[in-house]
Design a protein around this nucleic acid. Structure first.
Lengths: 314, 314
DNA sequence: TTGTAAGCGTTATCAC
DNA sequence: GTGATAACGCTTACAA
């Protein structure tokens, strides 16, 4: 592996001159520039990226922690982060966590070890206090409205659209309503937002029996469907946590020969379009782009992106 | 920033001993181990990841070049790569290319500069010869059946299922058939596979007018739908390049008040499930996992993963 | 305009 | 068991 010193030696110039030629920085006389470039070309030399990172003290890498990569929330978010990162010449490193606390901690340690300039948690299992603690080692951005003002955050402002959904259901005369969520009420800001919106609209708390959690895939949606089919009293409507998942719910009902209740999706996916499903578009791409901006600019701000309830037909 | 030399100095031991304690390697007496660890804890020291990479000569990073990240082909592929990479303690770096030759070249240069241990091209615009040329600088894996035996490749073996699709259409009595593709026949192995399968089944070439290219999104699907609506002779069936895209085609027909032709999807997405669309599952997750294995093991092999035609109901 | 030399922070070899 | 020291390659004051 030929290095910068080889080029210096062979060209008869110093290492710093070679560095200047490589980086097209500072003053280099045309003659020198030419002579050095010639040697570089002859030896097919390129500078080592890792050595550069070390010397510069940064990596141009942003780590993105993902509980699972097969969910539209994450793919859309990653897409937005990528778009924004590309513009600033940053690279996106995907970090699967499966919500495992030890894995999440390892990524925090990686940040501390300067493997990334910043870390974006698209979601997290660790308590916020741990994330806050690691801020001293590098920028950390979260993608939820935690009301934790010590961490920069970009998130979907879901409350208003959840309220709209429940108002819409109320207007349709629905009284028994099911809700699907990825994670339990206690740990998820999203689940809390849904339940809170319900209370706002209906004036009473949503029965725990009407909340089905642990749902991330259409298959989970089928399980949820099976659950609601046998639930008494029967639900009139279900707010699902994804259009794809709503399809899963629908399939469960269809297979059981039961007419499905009124379904509402989320994420605005094509599966919803296919059956004219009402849905919520959370604009996760934009959320991701904002998350990257926060990471990049190192601003301690909370940025909410308004969600939109889309009633079919659109 | 406290470094390994600080720890050595303060603990009274040498840099090598500190390194051994950090890496739990070789013989270190319990007393020394304890003494050094104490200083490490006191100073809240962690080794620098970039320095390590430099010293070791590798990064544990694999770059994944993606034309666009919002297409299911790529999300499924990335998902598979991630799963496999995680097991081997490798990190996935996402590299958007938009099929831009200069951007793709930049990534090849990054590989040459040792920014990644390997590069996986999920698709590429550059001629294969350029990729082959860069192999000398690091492992390069492609995700298509190029019949180029100089490059390791993991790809979906599509031919058989495409033949099945056309046979199925033939059995249904379809004679005029439309085909949707992402890229033109000349540059895309996938498009070629579809057209070839058509010829195999029908015994003649597919008319150029029946091939609509440049389709990657459902919106493109709508444009394709608009095209086929006005095309004469009318098509009886359309093989689309994605379930989501098929939905777009369907919407175009519905909006025009025309009964859609028989549609076949690809990718096996929930949008297809929603309307019982026949589809092809290319098992891209598995393709991605294999691609990573090839990158990791540095084997020059071509691995085909069989696709499956799924006729509804499933 | 060019060169010297001190970082950046590890790992690995080899001697003791 | 432990320690010197030479890599790993590059950037960047500072000097000339």
């Amino acid at each position: 592996m030929t290095n910068i010193r080889d080029i210096a030696r062979i060209s008869g110039y110093s290492v710093s001159m070679v560095s200047r030629v490589i980086n097209r920085k500072n003053y280099v006389s045309p003659a020198t520039q030419l002579a050095i470039q010639k040697v570089i070309d002859q030896l097919d030399y390129v500078p080592n990226a890792v050595a550069r990172d070390l010397s510069r003290g940064r990596t141009q890498n942003v780590g993105v922690v993902l509980p699972h990569s097969d969910h539209p929330y994450f793919t859309q978010l990653v897409h937005g982060i990528m778009r924004a990162a590309f513009k600033e010449n940053y690279h996106v490193v995907l970090l699967p966590s499966m919500y495992d606390a030890n894995i999440e901690r390892r990524y925090l340690e990686d940040l501390r070890q300067k493997a990334y300039d910043a870390l974006i948690f698209t979601s997290h299992g660790l308590p916020l206090s741990e994330l806050v603690h690691y801020q001293q080692y590098g920028t950390i951005v979260i993608c939820e409205n935690s009301h934790e003002t010590q961490l920069p955050a970009a998130y979907a402002e879901r409350q208003a659209s959840y309220v709209q959904v429940f108002q819409h259901l109320q207007e349709r005369g629905a009284s028994q309503i099911g809700v699907l969520a990825s994670r339990p009420l206690e740990v998820s800001a999203t689940t809390q937002a849904m339940v809170q919106a319900y209370t706002t609209v209906f004036g009473h708390e949503l029965s725990a029996a009407n909340i089905f959690t642990g749902v991330t895939t259409p298959q989970d949606g089928q399980r949820a469907g099976d659950y609601f089919i046998q639930l008494q009293p029967t639900v009139d409507a279900i707010l699902t946590n994804g259009d794809d998942i709503a399809i899963g719910v629908r399939q469960a009902y269809q297979r059981a020969g039961v007419t499905p209740p009124y379904l509402v999706g989320q994420e605005h996916q094509m599966s919803g379009e296919a059956i004219n499903l009402p849905t919520i578009d959370h604009h996760f791409g934009e959320v991701g782009a904002q998350a990257f901006q926060l990471a990049f600019s190192e601003q301690l701000r909370q940025v909410g992106i308004a969600s939109h309830f889309l009633l079919s037909p659109r």
